[in-house]
Simulated assay, not measured.
Amino acid sequence: MRIKSLKLQQLEILNVRTKLGDEENRELKYLSAGFQGEIDFDNILESFIHDKNCIHIKDYRFNTRLNLHSFREGGSEVQIDSLLISGNRIYTFEIKNYSRDLIFGADDWHYLNHDVFKSPMTQVSRQNHELKLLLQKAPRNAEIFSSIVFINPNQTIYNLPHDKNILVRSNLKKFLTHHVQSNTFDLQPLMHHLERHQTAASIYDSKVRIDFDSLKPGVYCQDCSQPLIRSSQYHYSCVTCRNSVDTLSAARRLTEEMKILNPDWPVTAHLISHLSGGQISASYLRKMRRSGQLQF
Score class of each variant (00 low, 15 high):
Lys4Gly: 02
Lys4Met: 14
Ser5His: 05
Leu11Thr: 12
Glu12Phe: 08
Asn15Ile: 00
Arg17Phe: 00
Thr18Ser: 06
Thr18Gly: 00
Lys19Phe: 11
Arg26Thr: 13
Arg26Pro: 00
Arg26Lys: 15
Lys29Glu: 15
Leu31Asp: 01
Ala33Trp: 00
Ala33Thr: 14
Ile44Asp: 08
Phe48Lys: 08
Ile49His: 05
Asp51Phe: 08
Asn53Ile: 12
Asn53Thr: 14
Cys54Gly: 03
Ile55Met: 01
Ile57Arg: 12
Asn63Met: 03
Thr64His: 11
Leu66Glu: 15
Asn67Ala: 15
Asn67Glu: 07
Leu68Pro: 02
His69Pro: 10
Glu77Pro: 15
Ile90Val: 05
Asn97Asp: 13
Asp107Ile: 11
Asp107Thr: 12
His110Gln: 15
Phe117Asp: 03
Pro120Trp: 10
Glu130Ile: 07
Leu135Val: 03
Gln136Trp: 13
Arg140Ala: 01
Ser147Asn: 09
Ile151Lys: 01
Thr156Phe: 01
Ile157Ala: 14
Leu160Gly: 13
Pro161Phe: 03
His162Arg: 11
Asn165Ser: 14
Arg169Asp: 13
Lys173Gln: 10
Lys173Leu: 09
His178Glu: 08
Phe185Asp: 11
Leu187Thr: 00
Gln188Gly: 00
Met191Pro: 02
Met191Thr: 05
His192Asp: 15
Ala200Cys: 01
Ala200Leu: 06
Asp205Pro: 03
Lys207Ile: 06
Arg209Leu: 12
Phe212Asn: 10
Asp213Cys: 07
Leu215Thr: 02
Ser225Leu: 06
Gln226Arg: 13
Leu228Ala: 04
Ile229Leu: 03
Gln233Arg: 10
Tyr234Gln: 14
Val239Ala: 06
Asp246Asn: 15
Asp246Ala: 02
Ser249Ile: 00
Thr255Glu: 03
Glu256Ile: 12
Lys259Glu: 12
Asp264Gln: 12
Asp264Asn: 13
Thr268His: 03
Leu271Ala: 10
Ser273Leu: 06
Leu275Ser: 04
Ile280Thr: 06
Ile280Tyr: 14
Ser281His: 05
Tyr284Cys: 07
Gly292Trp: 01
Leu294Tyr: 02
